[in-house]
Design a protein around this nucleic acid. Structure first.
Lengths: 189, 189
DNA sequence: ATTTACATGTAAGGGGTTACATGATTTG
DNA sequence: CAAATCATGTAACCCCTTACATGTAAAT
């Protein structure tokens, strides 16, 4: 039940059309809750039917831009959701699973994947750090936008974790592969 | 497409019945890829139909224990999957989303949720550390079970991140609430 | 015999992903 | 007017979640 509330948050910050929302989900909000345009249009329909948002007046026609704003009931629903008890979901990471599988059937080139992921996470980390420097300079003390900054810091720290962990994992994988090679060499020679 | 490979990995380590798998998914494997028994039974059916696993011979009857083992085709499929290119999924965390929403509509008791999550992550971290002490003592050097240890370390580091971050977030939320109170007090008095 | 635990499943519904479809607007 | 782009939507599929259903084995 997160997507509708992500959309409500985005619309409260600024009334938008479906496509605009899609683009905003590619940037800031999408950094911790991604969504495709199909999801967004479907959800906008549901939210409008539920009376939580409404389309701003204008010429209602097929294929034409339609802008939405949050109704009081929508703000209430979001406020209720913010503090609602929700247990954290357990980790579910395919890469960790693949490493575990590699412990059973061997690496078979997983090290290349580790390198690729390391590169991707380094880029993401760099992007977050750029955003931090731009939007949260040390000057304007943390009293304003403190919560937004916290969210960004979570992203930065998570990416930092991945970069560090993948660096270790890569070293271990290379060592593992070297040992497997050394163990098989005598058999061949 | 991770669940079938999680099951193949588990079955390669030890042939099991559906219920046994369910229990193993509550422990080790479930720490980074959780699954319910309904998922597992359905997936076992698919894997058997695909010829990747087979039920061990025995009295086939309703409501009776059925044990599975991995066939050569299953091992091959798992090996192929291990190094297959798969992009990391973007972060998708409801708690971060809720903090972002709180930046717009206010905290409304989110601090209690932060405290609760902090407690849960502290427990999970303690459990991981116990497992590490038990299964990966410093004595037996890291050459054996190195990959399994890496996976556990990922869990430890991720939980450590959450504990640290939630501690900061909680402090910020309390400060934010105090400021909101101070700002509203003059209006009342 | 009844209850409890074990063990395997079915059904319904929600959310996400991918591919495709359609109308409107701009651009050459 | 033809093509590209903008904008909104449909359809099909898969996975996950929750609740429920069924049958067997062991315990009292």
């Amino acid at each position: 039940m997160s997507l509708p509330h992500a959309i409500l948050t985005a619309l409260l910050e600024r009334p938008s059309s479906g496509l605009e929302l899609t683009r905003r989900f590619d940037r800031s909000i999408g950094f911790f809750w991604s969504a495709t345009h199909q999801q967004i249009y479907r959800e906008l329909g549901k939210l409008e039917q539920s009376g939580l948002i409404r389309a701003l007046p204008g010429p209602p026609a097929q294929g034409r831009r339609k802008e939405y704003e949050v109704l009081p009931a929508g703000r209430t629903a979001l406020t209720d959701w913010v503090a609602e008890p929700q247990d954290p979901k357990p980790i579910r990471d395919p890469l960790l699973l693949r490493l575990r599988a590699a412990a059973v059937v061997g690496l078979h080139g997983l090290d290349a994947e580790l390198r690729r992921h390391l590169d991707l996470h380094e880029r993401q980390l760099a992007e977050y750090l750029e955003i931090e420097q731009r939007d949260f300079p040390a000057a304007k003390a943390d009293t304003e936008n403190r919560l937004q900054h916290l969210v960004l810091q979570a992203g930065i720290q998570l990416e930092t974790f991945w970069v560090q962990w993948l660096t270790e994992a890569l070293a271990a994988a290379v060592a593992e592969a070297a040992e497997a090679l050394a163990a098989s060499a005598p058999e061949r020679g």
